[in-house]
């Protein structure tokens, strides 16, 4: 049996009268790339917020690498090796890329050595931008900096919230290449609307619909599931 990395049990979250998540169960194994899809407002980002500690769930439990995350702060969760990116790219815009990376190293669980940092930056093809202000970079470069800042902390799990959002089709191709190589560096959880990303990267797909888990399985099976086609993908897109 494979090693369970993320174990989510019956997680629910309400915002006033709105049930954003209704009893979600989910298991992710180490090394397995898990894709999460679903229409806008189906609770995908809320799910990631609950796991990363930004939002406290009303019910349910989350355990990561054998330890319960209940009641942990985001910084404690980050230090346990679980990291995330945001739907809207988020870097320290006023600081240079070098300062962004240095900030990521300060309280890292397992800070990469300068050589390892250089290797990751070369791999992400962002080394030449180290002295530029992060806010002056293109969206694609900022996404690369985001990944760099996470990777220098040597995370066990990286949760990516729409990693190709806003990128051009050429950039999406590059990013898919980057993400497929990223699988060799840490376990990935990815939220995406771009089915191409899910099809090429995910080992398992979870479909959220109005806060509930609609389906779960390998991409080929999910993308041909009639309920998923009817309620999310639509016939033209499928």
């Amino acid at each position: 049996m494979k090693d369970i990395l993320l174990d989510v049990k019956a997680v629910s979250k309400r915002f006033g009268g709105v049930a954003a998540l209704k009893g979600i169960d989910l298991i992710q194994h180490r090394g397995e790339t898990l894709g999460m899809i679903g229409p806008n407002g189906s609770g995908k980002t809320t799910f990631v917020n609950v796991i990363s500690g930004h939002t406290k769930p009303n019910a349910g439990s989350v355990s990561f690498d054998g330890h319960s995350l209940s009641g942990s702060n985001p910084f404690q969760i980050a230090k346990s090796g679980l990291t995330r990116t945001y739907q809207a790219v988020r870097v320290f815009g006023e600081l240079t890329v070098r300062e962004n990376v240095a900030t990521a190293l300060v309280d890292a669980r397992d800070a990469a050595s300068p050589d390892a940092v250089a290797e990751i930056a070369d791999w992400l093809r962002i080394s030449h931008r180290f002295d530029a202000r992060a806010g002056s970079l293109t969206l694609m470069e900022q996404r690369q900096v985001e990944l760099l800042m996470r990777l220098v902390q040597k995370p066990k799990l990286m949760m990516l919230d729409e990693p190709v959002g806003g990128l051009s089709s050429a950039e999406v191709r590059i990013m898919i290449g980057v993400l497929s190589e990223l699988k060799g560096r840490c376990t990935i959880f990815v939220i995406e609307h771009t089915m191409k990303v899910i099809r090429e990267l995910a080992d398992k797909v979870v479909v959220l619909m109005a806060g509930e888990k609609l389906a779960e399985g390998p991409p080929a099976q999910i993308l041909s599931d009639q309920r998923v086609i009817d309620q999310y993908l639509g016939t033209a897109d499928a």
Binding site: S52, P74, F92, T103
Partner: peptide, 24 residues
């Protein structure tokens, strides 16, 4: 490194927390 943490909190405290910095 204290200064680096404080600047990170100034720039984006949520992101700082996500990077393992004890914002509180």
């Amino acid at each position: 490194t204290l200064g680096r943490r404080l600047i990170a909190i100034r720039e984006d405290d949520e992101l700082a927390g996500m990077l393992g910095i004890n914002v509180t």
